[in-house]
């Protein structure tokens, strides 16, 4: 709310100044949970970039039988086993899987995959949803009806179910799962943005701009879009966590990443199916832990953003 009034009178000032003047940002940074979320996200991005640059993809994809110990528990846990004797305490901090691959390196590389495909999914659905939502709000009538009724149909399915139905059409694979999830998330963005845009359209300055002769694209890009940014950002952040969960879920069910890929969902799937009942818990534990922490980071930040935008919830009552 506060950002809306802000952007009106700041006018042509630079983006950095706008941000500095924004009560939203200072509010956000004074929220400890949101800062914790930001820290987690930064850490995960750093891990993702590090593993993309320095982890050898071959060593985490192909079988390492013969090179590494097989199905070894985390090395710092087992004091006297052959593994620690030969390799040192921190050789395999998360243990190894049935193909002797180092789970630690695989989990690190999985961070890169989750971040990459998560960003693409959320980015694509944000773009699509924002476009459709603004078009629906701005042109109204038939355009609005056609777009929003289509969104209603997509929203009539539980999200994971719709993703599965789309996978049945598109076939399996990480990229196809990304497309399916993009379509699943688009309606949410379209709804949020349409609502926000309709509110902006009621304002008199839009009428004034149009009276001055501004064309549709200019009104949309210069005036409507900036005023919808706050709800879009919150929705994207919260949706990012969900995207990571759903991407992994589809790999977990066997429709996403192909065998060998160090994706968290696939590691969990193999670990749960083959390792849980035999007591090899580390196989599925660590990929799940990283997944949960990452999602928690996005949820903390998204929650903090929502609170910062809605100051009513802060003051305490006796």
């Amino acid at each position: 709310m506060s950002t809306e009034t802000q952007t009106e009178d700041v006018g042509q000032r630079g983006i950095v100044e706008r941000l500095r003047a924004s009560p939203f940002l200072s509010e956000l940074l004074s929220n400890r949970l949101a800062v914790a979320g930001l820290t987690i996200i930064f850490a995960m991005v750093a891990i993702a970039l590090y593993s993309r640059l320095f982890v050898d993809l071959g060593s985490v994809t192909q079988s390492q039988i013969g090179t590494n110990p097989n199905l070894a528990p985390p090395s710092w846990l087992s004091k006297k086993t052959a593994i620690t004797g030969e390799y040192g305490t921190f050789a395999y901090p998360f243990g190894t899987d049935i193909q002797s691959r180092d789970i630690f390196s695989r989990v690190l590389y999985g961070t890169w995959l989750a971040m990459k495909y998560g960003t693409i999914t959320v980015g694509a659905s944000t773009l699509l949803g924002v476009g459709l939502g603004i078009l629906a709000a701005y042109y109204g009538d038939i355009t609005d009806n056609v777009i929003m009724r289509t969104m209603d149909v997509l929203l009539a399915f539980p999200s994971l179910l719709l993703a599965l139905a789309l996978v049945a059409i598109f076939g399996t694979g990480l990229w196809k799962v990304v497309i399916a999830l993009t379509l699943v998330y688009t309606p949410r963005f379209a709804r949020v943005v349409r609502g926000a845009a309709l509110k902006v359209l009621e304002d008199e300055y839009i009428e004034a701009t149009e009276a001055l002769g501004a064309k549709d694209p200019r009104v949309i890009v210069r005036h409507i879009l900036p005023n919808c940014l706050a709800p879009i950002t919150v929705q994207s952040t919260l949706n990012f966590g969900l995207a990571i969960i759903d991407l992994a879920a589809l790999s977990f069910l066997g429709f996403g990443a192909e065998a060998g890929t160090p994706s968290w969902g696939l590691m969990l799937s193999n670990g749960v199916k083959n390792g849980l009942l035999t007591g090899d818990w580390w196989w599925s534990f660590f990929p799940g832990l990283f997944l949960a922490i990452t999602v928690l980071g996005f949820n903390l930040l998204g929650d903090g953003m929502r609170d910062a935008l809605d100051p009513r919830m802060r003051e305490t009552v006796d």
Partner: peptide
């Protein structure tokens, strides 16, 4: 409880399920 609830919605069912199986069944 707030942080607990946030953690609760961040943990996917396909991880919390196996954890419960590990603890209570295994």
């Amino acid at each position: 409880t707030r942080i607990g609830a946030l953690a609760g919605i961040s943990v996917p069912i396909y991880w919390s399920g196996p954890l419960l199986i590990l603890l209570f069944a295994q």
